[in-house]
């Protein structure tokens, strides 16, 4: 295949414990460390490995958002992507609008395969890949833990609740990746320097001719109800007694 397109979403870093703002208007993101959505890093790693095996010739990374997302795209270029596209919007795109943006870029670029993370760790929506496959009218292979190619078909093993499911899909197609697919490479300093010279196109959302989807309104944010800390027991006998008291054994 020729081109693989990978989505990179800028999200609050995995290690940050997010706090809800006291007025309930959102979560605190000021001064918080931002990173590439960890699943998207796995998606990019897989695309790079496919290219390195000689099964694809170009890897393009795409982000949707403000100019800040250039940071994540540069990291993607340093990992080894050939070029980057930023679709500029003032606010983060909802999943269906994001899917429509991806489709517009796919049509411009004639993409053979799209690899996305199975979910973003901010909204935890897990929608965009499936929606893109729908609006594109192409196959989806979600929650992938193994991917291989044979000519114009891909064989994908998926992590499902009862174990591992394998499906075969015709390209072009959308794959969303799970944690166990690979371990993303670390970026080396010389690659960061090289990445500065790689092309990064910026396209205003309005220039794409994409209709924004009806938006789900976010009314109020609140912290979750927390569980109360219970009792500590001294030994196994104490544990068994406590379980029996609750009628659990």
């Amino acid at each position: 295949m020729e081109k693989i397109l990978v989505g990179l979403k800028r999200v609050v870093d995995y290690n940050v414990r997010v706090q809800v703002k006291s007025d309930g208007s959102g979560v605190e993101t000021d001064g918080v460390k931002m990173s590439i959505n960890p699943f998207d890093e796995i998606a990019l790693e897989e695309a790079l490995r496919i290219k390195e095996r000689g099964e694809a010739s170009e890897v393009i990374v795409l982000s949707i958002g403000t100019a800040d997302s250039q940071q994540q795209l540069r990291t993607g270029l340093a990992m080894g992507a050939d070029r980057a596209i930023l679709v500029q919007t003032d606010e983060s795109a909802d999943p269906l609008t994001a899917a429509r943006i991806f489709k517009a870029i796919i049509e411009r670029e004639n993409v053979d395969l799209v690899i996305l993370g199975k979910q973003a760790i901010d909204d935890d929506n897990s929608q965009t890949g499936q929606m893109l496959a729908a609006v594109w009218g192409r196959p989806q292979a979600t929650f992938a833990s193994a991917v291989s190619f044979d000519g114009n078909t891909a064989r994908v093993t998926r992590e499902v609740d009862i174990g591992l499911e394998t499906i075969e899909i015709d390209l072009p197609a959308v794959i969303t990746v799970d944690l166990r697919l690979n371990e993303p490479r670390y970026v080396k300093l010389p690659d960061i320097m090289k990445a500065k010279k790689k092309p990064l196109d910026q396209i205003p959302f309005a220039d794409l001719g994409v209709e924004a989807a009806p938006r789900t309104k976010e009314i109020k944010f609140e912290p979750p109800e927390s569980r109360q800390r219970g009792i500590m027991v001294e030994d196994v006998a104490g544990l068994v007694t406590a379980l029996k008291d609750k009628g659990l054994v």
């Binding site: 609050v12 997010v18 789900t216 976010e218 009314i219 912290p223």
Partner: peptide, 10 residues
């Protein structure tokens, strides 16, 4: 959202 660190009404 955010791994259950926040609950949003939508």
């Amino acid at each position: 959202i955010y791994a259950g660190n926040a609950i949003v009404t939508v």
